[in-house]
């Protein structure tokens, strides 16, 4: 199985967000909000750290 860096990060973020959402919140609406929020934070931080490291990649 071959995944790009972004695909691997998306899968990882999705699995962790869903698990944390279900374990940490009880009401369906709260769960959905937490899952979306957590997923977006994972994505945002991942992309931000990627850009921060970009100057050192050359």
């Amino acid at each position: 199985m071959t995944l790009s860096h972004l695909q691997a990060m998306l899968l990882f973020a999705l699995a962790i967000s869903v698990a944390f959402g279900f374990l940490g919140r009880r009401r369906p609406a709260e769960r959905a909000r937490f899952i979306v929020w957590s997923f977006l934070v994972f994505l945002g931080v991942g992309i931000a750290v990627g850009w921060l490291m970009y100057p050192f990649s050359k």
């Binding site: 962790i16 698990a19 279900f22």
Partner: peptide, 11 residues
């Protein structure tokens, strides 16, 4: 919660 744990860990 059971299904979410099973599916996430399994995935």
């Amino acid at each position: 919660r059971a299904a979410a744990c099973f599916l996430c860990v399994g995935m």
